[in-house]
Simulated scan of single mutants.
Amino acid sequence: MSDRLTGPVEVIGTGLLGTSVALACRRAGLDVLLTDVSAEHVRTASALGAGRARAAEDRPQLVVVAVPPDHLGVTIARALDDGDAVVTDVGSVKAGPYAAVAAHPGASRYVGGHPMAGSERSGPLAASADLFEGRPWAVVPHPGSHPDAVALVEQLVAICAAVAVRLTPEDHDRAVARTSHVPHLLASLAAGRLADAPADHLRLSGQGVRDVTRVAAGSPELYGQIVAANADAVLGLLGEVRGELDALIAAIAAADGGALASLLEQGVAGTRAIPGKHGGPVRPTATVFVSVPDEPGVLARLFAAAGEAGVNIEDVRIDHDLGRAVGLVELLVEEGRDEHLRESLESRGWATHR
C-alpha cells in the first residue's frame, strides 16, 4: 500500500459531494473514475469534467464512497471487496459504517471521512471543485486503519483544500450530534409551529425566526436517514434538552425570573463557545444598520463604501421590508469601529439606524 496519492480515484455516488470531490481531484491532475446507480448522473458529472465512467479493467488506488447514509455500510464493504484500494467515505455518521465493515478482512484499508460542507442544492449540477475550500473535514480512522491509508485520505483532504480534523468514530458522532443533528431537529420543531400559523402572524416574521429555522428546509428523507444512523448520540442529547425544556416550562409557569435568566444565560454561553473567524476566539463586535433599496448592485456599493472607510465587515445579515422594496442590512464590525463606519456611511448618503 502506497502512502502517496497518484490515482486513479474512484468516486461512488455522483451527487453534490461526490462530484465536488471528483472535480477537485481532476483539478489536481488525477484520473477520476465515476460510478453511480444513475447513469444520467455519471453522464452529467462527466460532462462537467469530473472524470469518466469506470471501466471493468480500471483499478483505483483510492475509493471515495458518497452515497446516502442507508447505503454506506454495504457500499464500503463492496469497495473493499473490489481490489486492494484504500476506501473512505463522506458520510455524516461514522460509527455505523465502521461497525458494518469491522470484521471485513480488508478493514485496515478503510478510513472514515466527513467533509463539513454542503449546499441547499443537490445533484452533480450543484457541485464545485471549491466546495470544501477552508472547511473542516473529519478524518476518522478506526483502531485497525493502516497508517498509509490514513495518509492517503489526508492527501485527498489537502487536494480538496479542506482542513483535516482527526477524530475517533465515537467522538465524531457525538460531535456532529451536538453541532448539527440536534440543532437541525430543534430548528424543525420551531419551524413546524409556523406551518399552520395565520397569515397575519407570519407577517411579523423577522430575521430571528429565519436564522433559527433556516436549516429546517433540508431534505426530510436524507436528514431522517442521518439522524436514524446516529440515534444513540442524538437521543442522549435530546434527553438533556427535554430536561431543560421541562425546567424552562416550570420557570415560566412559576414566573421565576432567576431560573429563567439562568437558562437563557446557558444559551449565551453556548454562542460564545462557537469558534470565531478563522477558528480563533470570538471577538466583540458591534452592529451598524443600513437601509438599502432592493436593487442590483446596491450591496456591492455598500461594501465598497465600508472599504473606503477602512472598516472590515465581519458578518452581514439582511432583513427585508414586507411593505416596500427595501432591506435593512445589519453590518457586524469590530467593536469600536461602528461609530466611525456609521458617520462615514452617512457622509456618503447612506441611511443608517441605531
Rank of each mutant, 00 (worst) to 15 (best):
P281H: 02
A126V: 05
H278I: 00
E221A: 15
V63W: 08
R178W: 09
G270F: 01
V101A: 01
P60K: 13
V316N: 05
D196W: 13
G106H: 06
V329I: 09
A177Y: 02
S205Q: 09
E314L: 11
E314V: 13
G297H: 13
L194G: 01
V215G: 02
T88F: 10
D81F: 10
G73E: 11
R324F: 06
V215Q: 08
A261Y: 03
A85E: 08
P284M: 00
R109K: 06
A127V: 07
V215W: 09
G336T: 12
L185A: 00
V9A: 00
V111C: 03
P105N: 14
A85H: 08
G51V: 02
P281L: 00
T88I: 05
L264Y: 06
R193M: 13
V157P: 08
L17R: 04
G49V: 07
D294A: 14
V329L: 05
D211Y: 07
R354G: 11
G29Q: 06
D200P: 02
K277G: 03
S92F: 03
R54M: 15
G336I: 11
R178I: 02
G208S: 07
L194E: 05
S347Q: 15
G83W: 02
V329D: 11
D315F: 01
G279R: 01
V241M: 02
V42H: 06
V209D: 08
